[in-house]
Design a protein around this nucleic acid. Sequence first.
DNA 1: TCAACTGTACTACGTATCATAGTACACTAC
DNA 2: GTAGTGTACTATGATACGTAGTACAGTTGA
Lengths: 126, 126
Amino acid sequence: MLELDLRSRKPIYEQLVDKIKELIIIEVMKPDEQLPSVRSMAQELAINPNTIQKAYRELENQGYIYSVKGKGSFVSPATPQPDIEKLIQVKKELAKYLSEAMFLGMPSEEIINLIKEIEDSMGGGS
Amino acid sequence: MLELDLRSRKPIYEQLVDKIKELIIIEVMKPDEQLPSVRSMAQELAINPNTIQKAYRELENQGYIYSVKGKGSFVSPATPQPDIEKLIQVKKELAKYLSEAMFLGMPSEEIINLIKEIEDSMGGGS
DNA sequence: TCAACTGTACTACGTATCATAGTACACTAC
DNA sequence: GTAGTGTACTATGATACGTAGTACAGTTGA
């Protein structure tokens, strides 16, 4: 289900956060759907449960999931609150990667197509 | 000239790479223009020369600058070779931040405007 | 020639982060 | 109660980051 790069410079828990976040954004995981338990996912991915929990905690802090002690962790029913600081930071990163991609030769048409694809996968995700 | 966030989670040398890369991309720094020496920039920014050198080495590896022993470091005269692997990686990051920005409520029109701004600052950079 | 500047390459050290391992506790469902 | 959840600790080893110091090679200009 999830592919991780254990040799990457990027921490495992951050990779997890990114992947799960993506699954939620493109609505592969629906609101209130239960995520695998900390322990089962740890076993499946052959990594430590603490690492999974760190990822889940981060996702909860960002509003993408919620956890209930004794029950499990679930996808948040609604869009996370528009965290303004978070959005500002994301915009900065976005601008950075836009500049670099265009500098490396990615045509703006391709980027706009990418935006449209994302728009479609978010809105009518069937 | 350059503003760094020493308390950031992001390594200083990476911040340096990003900032200088941006100056080159938007052509504030012209081809063959000399960069401050490792030692002078270290003094100016009050950080260790080794950190500057690490940033310069990374910029050289990516093709943005070149260094000549005894003379100094200079902006590369031409666009770095279209590093395909690099571009693929940048595209992935770009897609990630595009998704997240739109998920957090950034309208696609705003993103397209951002693209145009970047396009302008690259082409006719006066 | 020589001094002063440049880039470059090391070693060593302290610190922080990451990931693991292990243990423990609280809560829920059956 | 038992088995499953989330959660919170401590401890340990590995790695990356930044600093400090030293050294060497090449360029420049007096």
